[in-house]
Amino acid sequence: MTTEFSQDFFQLFGLSRRFALDSQQLEQSWRAAAAAVHPDRYASSPDAEKRMALMQATHVNEAYQTLKSPLRRGRYLLSLQGVDTQEETNTSMPLDFLMAQMEWRESIEEARDSSDVDALEALSSRLRSDKRALEAELGNALDSTADLDAAAVMVRKLRFLEKLDQEIGDAIETLLG
């Protein structure tokens, strides 16, 4: 319908289509775009413009959220190249990864059962550093070696790690009150 909606999210913010990005530039571009279309700017405008502003602002926020998160950015880059990451359907993962997952789960359960918030916090920060390492690998697979199959596996792995992090967060919140 409009040029903005047919552009991909990278084009929208004037970024090159790759995994590695300057997060400050992304944030600045988002702020500038969000400022231009925010519904507050159109509060006294005709209804048509109000509706349009709501759609555009939603779109700009969606684009930002997608590019900001490494997992979502990776998934999005793959989808632009026609690769479905099959996160819901493809559950076959390397054995060592699955073993590591089980160990994580046990550690989280143990810390939760002994109401040890500090242990959970420590697990969370360890997990986050694992995530960062995997994100760097994903960037390499997408930007340098262009190994899309490997990248899809990494996206699925990242999804697992993200779920673990959420579990830790939920456990901490439950313990805090």
């Binding site: 319908m1 409009t2 040029t3 903005e4 929208l12 913010f13 004037g14 600045q28 571009s29 500038a32 775009a33 400022a35 231009a36 279309v37 405008s45 005709p46 048509a48 413009e49 509706r51 349009m52 502003a53 555009q56 700009v60």
Partner: peptide, 16 residues
């Protein structure tokens, strides 16, 4: 309205 909104985004990003 849609066309003007597009122009606004482009102006905003150009200014950026």
């Amino acid at each position: 309205a849609a066309r003007r909104m597009d122009r606004n985004i482009q102006r905003a990003l150009k200014g950026q």
